[in-house]
Design a protein around this nucleic acid. Sequence first.
DNA 1: AGGTAAACAGGCATAAGATA
DNA 2: TATCTTATGCCTGTTTACCT
Length: 281
Amino acid sequence: MAEHDDDVLLPRFFKVFLSESASESFAIPLSFMEHLADPLPNTAKLQGTGGRDWTVNMTKIRDGVYFTAGWSKFAQDHELVDGEFLTFVYDGHRTFEVSVFGRLGCKETRAEVEAIAVDGSSSDSDGSSSDSEEERELSMDFYGDTSLGEDEEISQSLYPLEDEETESDSAVVEGNLDIEALTNPHFSTTLKNRIYELLIPANVVKENKLTFGDSVKYIDGEGTLVGLRGKWADDRICFKGWDRICRRNRLKKHQDTVECELLHDRNKVHSIRVHIMRGTT
DNA sequence: AGGTAAACAGGCATAAGATA
DNA sequence: TATCTTATGCCTGTTTACCT
C-alpha cells in the first residue's frame, strides 16, 4: 500500500498509440522532458506489464526526445494497435514502467514471461486485480499529479507549448469509436457557441452518482489540460478551459462529435478522456 | 393533454488581460 | 492610459421530461 503511494509520486505521462507516427520511434511529450535524467541516458529500460524488459535507445532530435532503436520491437511484442493508451511511469533514472490500456479502456497484460515466478517488481502483474480494481488503477495512473488544485500547476497545464501541440499524436477517432464499448460513464457533445465551458449533462451525473472536485483533467491525444469548475447560479456542472480542447483538435461545428469519457475514482470524476469523431453530425 | 419543473443554450454585462 | 479582446457569471427563454 505504502509502496503504491510512493509509486503515485513518480513522474508519468500517457500517449495514444498511432502506428502511423509511432511504429518506428516514439516521442516523449515535451512537457515531460523536465523529468528526464540529465545528462540523458543513451538507453532506457521499458518494463512491460507482462514482466519482461526491453532496452530502447533514447535519442534527442531537435528539441524532443524519442525512443528509437528497440521501440519497434517493444511495439511489436505488445501487439500495439491504433488508439490504444500507453502510460509510462518513470523512476527518475532510466526505467519506464509501461502499461497498455486497450481500446475498451481496460489495462491489458501483454508480452508475458512464460512460466516465470513474478519477482514482485511490478505491482501490475500479480494477476489478482478485479475489473473494478483495474479501473481504479487506471484512475490512479492519471491521478499521479497531486498538485492538481494549485493555481500554478493549473495555469501551466492550461497553456501548453505550441510545439507540444503540433508534434504530438492526436486521439482523433475517424468516426469508428465503439461507444458501446466504453466502460466508464460517458456522454457526447458538439461544438457549442459557448466554447469555454464543457457542460456535464445532469442525467449522466445522476445516473452514475458522480461527484466532482474543483477541477478535472481533459485528456486527448495531445496530452492533458486542466479545467476549473465553473460557477453557475443553478446546479449545473461545467468546467472551463474546454475551448483549448476545441481549438487544438480543430473541432468543427455541425460536423464533429466529441465523446467524453468520465474517468473516476470511487465515483469522483478526476479526468475526462476526449474521443473525437469527425464528420458524424 | 396540460401543467410544472428541470435542464440547457445562449445573450448580455462586466471583469480581466493584452496591446498600442 | 485608452482601447480592444477574451473570459466568465448572471439571467432568461426554450426545450424536454415527468406527473397528474
